[in-house]
Simulated assay, not measured.
Amino acid sequence: MRVLKLFGLLCVFTLASLFATERAQASCTATITSLNFGVINPVTPTTVDVNATINYTCSSLITLLSYIKVCIEIGRGPQDTDVNSRVLTHTTISSEKLTYNVYSNPALTTVFGNVYGSASPPVIIHHGPYAIGLLATARGSQTVHGRIPVTNPFMLRSVGQYNSTLPVTVRMAIVSVIGQSPCTVTGTPANISFPIAASLISACKINAQPLNFGSQPSNFSVNVMSTSTIASTCTKGTPYQIGLNNGLYAVGNQRRMKAGDGQFINYELYKDSARSQRWGAALNTAETLAGVATGATQNASVYGKVVPQTGLRAANYKDTITVTITY
């Protein structure tokens, strides 16, 4: 009778020790690399695809021929409405955002999320079956595919750094069959932060329309006027200056058009309709046209004038002006 009691106590003690060991050893650890979309030039934007890697280790006591099922979940960021609508937010202007997302497959068709059985599920990976029971360890990695699409209105977003942080959870379960059901918690999951970043730089593009003074009699006696338009587009918030050089045939600051026979006709270009502010190229002076970009196309008028001149022969007179935008 005493022997039976002792044996019963020994069994209870041994089983309790095994369960305590399982609880202590069943856990996951994980690391993840950052996802950096790099520098985006809004003048020549493209869809940017980059990858990150999750490395994980999960250990637990298991039974013979069991599997360790690893579930990797990525949640929504602090500014996201859900995992299907992820955004990067400007570091100092919270209203400025860029859309992006992360995917679990190379084709970038399945959003990497945390809702089981949805269109944006976690990734489930099975390790095993293990031929021996006791302590088993599952190690692996999972690629996270990121994309920031070209459809973002980059020009209308402020220059600077855009960031987000996604919560990542790696959890495990011990199962006897392979399946896509959620991981019932075994041990301690790994909870890590996933940093995402992109940088939007200042950039500009510019286009100038021809300025044509038309056909005039060789002995014209009044000023001949004409206008043209320079269209510039720069990243929102970018300070810029637009300058015009003196052309190909200037003498000093006097602009001239040249005919095929080598004859010249003087003309000038101005920033204002009164034609009193000569448009030149000296930066940080009144010669250039300065502004701050809105992100949309901004048009500036160029006002041309030819004053009456004597001794002109009938011909086509031309010049080429270089327009420079500095930002």
Rank of each mutant, 00 (worst) to 15 (best):
F7R: 09
F13R: 06
F13A: 15
T14K: 06
L18V: 07
L18N: 09
Q25R: 02
T31M: 05
I32W: 00
P42H: 11
T44Q: 07
T46I: 10
N55W: 09
Y56H: 05
T63L: 11
S66D: 13
I68S: 11
V70Y: 09
I74E: 13
P78R: 05
Y100V: 00
V102L: 12
A107N: 12
T109G: 14
F112V: 12
Y116R: 06
A138L: 03
Q142S: 12
H145V: 01
M155G: 00
Q161T: 15
S164Y: 08
T165Q: 04
I174A: 00
S176G: 07
I178A: 12
I178G: 04
S181T: 13
C183S: 10
C183I: 03
A197G: 08
A197K: 09
A197I: 10
L200F: 08
K205Y: 02
K205G: 07
I206W: 00
N207D: 15
L211C: 08
Q216S: 02
Q216K: 07
S218C: 12
V224D: 06
S232G: 03
P239H: 11
Y240A: 02
R255P: 05
Q263I: 01
S276T: 14
G280T: 08
T288L: 01
A290W: 00
T297F: 00
N299H: 09
V306Y: 01
T310Y: 09
L312V: 15
R313T: 15
N316C: 02
V323R: 04
T324F: 15
